[in-house]
Amino acid sequence: MKSARDHLMFVLPLMVILIGIEFFIVFDRVTQNYEEKLKSSYSILVVARKKIDLPTFKKIDDRIVDAETMKRKDIARIIAKEMRNASGNEILKSLPYFYSIHLNSFLRQDEIDGIEKKLMKYPGINRVETFGDSHNSKYNLFVFLKTLFWSFVLLMSLVSIFLIIKQMEVWHMAHRERMQTMEIFGASMMLRSGVLFRMGIVDALTATMLSSGIFAILKYYWVPNSGIELFMQKRDLIFEPADIAILLGISMTIVIVAVINVAMISREIRE
């Protein structure tokens, strides 16, 4: 009974950390696509009196990666249709140049405002349209949710780390005398902490299996019936076999750090 409780005291906080990390991995994987789409669909419209090539745009701001020229002839033809007494060529002559500017990443509104100012200072540019409001609100909501989720995972991890530290203190109290006696009789650190390592490894394996099990159940039983379209479409991304290795690696690292720490603080101090 005592032994089961000792294991649980370490397995549970370890599981909370692993579940938090796996949630983050899954969330990140599922939303990565969406984020990419948001980034790539965003562009700034530039209206200029003269032709401007991509290197010039890059000189204005190095975050500009592409400048797509909008076809002026097509625009002129459409206008000419509307205006019966004007020829297409005349319209084309007086028509400014239109560019759709793409950036290397999705920037904050203040950064986009900075680029807008730089573009407006460039001679020949008449107008810049950043379409900030509608696009930003979508992206900001997305970033807000992601940050909120991150904060939650971080908070849970901090609480769990605190619980693991408490458990390390329990280990220290329970094993100090044994470890010190073994040290007096010449046992190496590995031998002294062997019991803790064995216990920790069992706990790490248990926590990894339970956490992976929870996600496997979510993937195969909950998601198909959840009605959440995003999750149903991306079901394959929700839990991958490789995640077990990541979780096992993390839990083993936590165990090794915890046991070495206990062994170090329990060692004899040569005065």
Partner: peptide, 22 residues
């Protein structure tokens, strides 16, 4: 070296220093 030396010594304590879980 100290571990090696201690492994060839026998040490007896007033408070026994036995491992109670063993």
């Amino acid at each position: 070296k100290l571990q090696e030396l201690r492994s060839h010594m026998g040490i007896i304590f007033q408070d026994y220093k036995l491992i109670n879980e063993w």
